[in-house]
Design a protein around this nucleic acid. Structure first.
Lengths: 84, 84
DNA sequence: ATATTTCGTTGTATATTTACAACATTATAT
DNA sequence: ATATAATGTTGTAAATATACAACGAAATAT
């Protein structure tokens, strides 16, 4: 299958919680370089890996990963407040 | 990575919409045997493949795939109505 | 200032997903 | 009843994800 590029917010979420790649990697049970590859968006994770990350951050898969480029959280939040 | 077994509702959703594996496979751009492997839960799809299926059925990834065995839709719906 | 941790990156090996061909079985249509 | 389509399955090849080692650069702590 020709995979589309997938975007993600892993690095952002990780920084918000101030944990290192190594820590995150240990928590979800993968190699720390694998987290690096993911953050650089160099490949598409397996669904199980996506679930592990989603469970760790306690957020839906669709919030962390997307087929379209991610807006910064700040802007997305601002847009949301504006529309209400 | 040692992947957990993932459960899914692909076959159910496909039957609800009365489309064949071949049709679904064409729509999401994979081989029709790949849909077979997925329905038999013989491997974990890539996140991109999961997204394609989720987009096709217009349902969240978490509704279609789960780390825990899926309840029949009928029971899940009944539980929902009971709780309200 | 120096040590330590984290990050970015590259390369190679292994594991897993996906494609594809083949064929028997079951279901559906004519 | 026969043809056609759909399914279940197996095997092999290919593509892609992940592990792991290595190393230099940047950031942080002491």
């Amino acid at each position: 299958m020709i995979s589309r590029k997938l975007y993600n917010r892993i690095s952002l979420l990780r920084k918000e919680r101030d944990i290192s790649r190594k820590d995150l990697a240990e928590k979800i049970g993968v190699n720390f370089q694998t987290v690096g590859y993911l953050e650089r968006e160099e490949y598409n994770p397996s669904l199980d890996l996506a679930f592990k990350i989603s469970e760790y951050f306690n957020l839906p898969v669709e919030f962390i990963f997307s087929t379209k480029p991610m807006k910064p959280l700040s802007q997305e939040l601002y847009d949301k407040t504006k529309n209400q």
